[in-house]
């Protein structure tokens, strides 16, 4: 009798465990699907990486045959990584990374001290004083926030 009761209680516990497990797992799975549907960006959506790649595609036509280029943006080069690591702004670093991603196999260095420099100014225009200080002269303004610079006195 006691054994029967024990077996019955065991079955009840197992039944609860099974129901709980399957319910929670299915809920987690379907809830994820619901959130993906809710966040569906629509047919005309272009993700930021693809959009930046397109900008860089137009730049490639004007890029001289070099193995490496420099990089400048709205903020100073030293701040790109520190802004991201302090969780303050990831945009500038993301733009830099995607610039490298798009221009590969050309090496993009986070520095203005290169004969050819790619400027990405999606978040604001370049500081003229900064450009003067680094002797950067605009070679081609693509009009999409991307400017190709040459360093004066170098070719």
């Amino acid at each position: 009798m006691q054994e029967k009761r024990k077996a019955s209680s065991q079955r009840q516990r197992f039944g609860i465990a099974l129901l709980l497990l399957t319910a929670v797992c299915l809920y987690g799975n379907f809830d994820l699907l619901y959130s993906r549907i809710r966040d569906y960006p629509g047919r005309n959506w272009e993700d930021p990486v693809s959009a930046h790649e397109k900008r860089m595609e137009s730049l490639k036509a004007f890029l001289p045959p070099v193995s490496s280029v420099g990089y400048v943006t709205t903020v100073e080069n030293e701040k790109l990584f520190s802004l991201e690591k302090s969780f303050r702004d990831v945009e500038f670093l993301a733009q830099f990374i995607v610039t490298q991603y798009a221009l590969t196999p050309v090496f993009v260095y986070n520095s203005p001290d290169h004969p050819v420099v790619v400027g990405v100014f999606l978040s604001g225009p370049p500081d003229p004083a900064f450009l003067r200080r680094h002797r950067l002269v605009s070679k081609k303004d693509l009009g999409v926030g991307v400017i190709l610079f040459e360093r004066r006195g170098e070719s």
């Binding site: 799975n29 993906r36 569906y40 960006p41 993700d47 990486v49 990374i97 995607v98 991603y101």
Partner: peptide, 22 residues
């Protein structure tokens, strides 16, 4: 449902998350 979630996530970020393109 997982296949659908996968597809929708890829539509939103076809190049993957940060470390994928980094």
């Amino acid at each position: 449902s997982s296949v659908a979630s996968f597809i929708l996530a890829v539509v939103r970020e076809p190049h993957g998350k940060w470390d994928a393109w980094l």
